[in-house]
């Protein structure tokens, strides 16, 4: 793994140290896995597949309490607490650090009607891309390479209004509307089973190798 860890020197200033004690962003890996690939045992998703603009938008969402505040689930509260304890510098440093990892994912086997999922996915493709590679213009993240347990939980969260319902969360609101149309749990499952068959893409970070 090749890193250019230029931010380490810059940010070891004593104020940051005193505020968070974390002079680096390695603590993201404690929850999200050593390659930012996600860790089911902690319920923390794959970050390595996510582009900088989306990482940034979601840290903002957690910091503003759009994600995590009204929720009952402990997972988003956990990430919200972390985001809220981060300074603007911390966020910048963390995003630089996370986007430096090669994308990877622990293989999952998922049972579901992939053909049906593919049909349903046509609606999603408009925003998330045909290969679920994400689309910055739409604010829609890549889904390929994300864990099924996480995708399912998010779709349920949008559907129940735990995500995407906060007042200023316009991107979340967009996705919430879509999720509302997916009433059948089986549909969610089939969709996710189909997404699970797609190869990991990483379009925004051409410097990193793609490994699956």
């Amino acid at each position: 793994m090749k890193y250019l860890l230029f931010w380490f020197g810059v940010l070891c200033s004593s104020s940051v140290y005193a505020e968070t004690f974390h002079a680096d962003a390695q603590y993201c890996l404690v929850c999200h896995g050593s390659n930012a690939q996600g860790n089911e045992a902690i319920s923390a998703p794959n970050l390595a597949i996510l582009p900088d603009w989306y990482l940034s938008s979601q840290i903002q969402a957690f910091q503003s309490g759009w994600r995590g505040h009204q929720t009952t689930d402990a997972y988003s509260k956990e990430m919200m607490a972390v985001a809220k304890s981060m300074s603007a510098e911390d966020v910048k440093r963390a995003i630089g650090f996370i986007t430096g990892f090669q994308v990877s994912k622990t293989p999952e086997t998922l049972t579901g009607d992939e053909t049906h999922g593919k049909t349903l996915y046509q609606t999603c493709a408009a925003c998330h891309g045909a290969a679920a590679e994400g689309n910055q213009a739409m604010g829609a993240p890549p889904l390929a390479g994300q864990y099924s347990w996480y995708l399912l939980r998010q779709l349920q969260a949008y559907r129940s209004g735990q995500r995407g319902a906060a007042e200023n969360d316009s991107r979340g609101a967009m996705m919430k509307q879509i999720a509302a149309t997916l009433q059948q749990d089986q549909d969610l499952n089939d969709l996710v089973a189909y997404i699970n068959t797609l190869d990991i893409q990483k379009t925004n970070n051409p410097k990193t190798d793609i490994k699956k």
Partner: peptide, 9 residues
């Protein structure tokens, strides 16, 4: 801790 080791390559 095992739950962390599960996330370590």
């Amino acid at each position: 801790p095992a739950q962390l080791m599960a996330g370590i390559e």
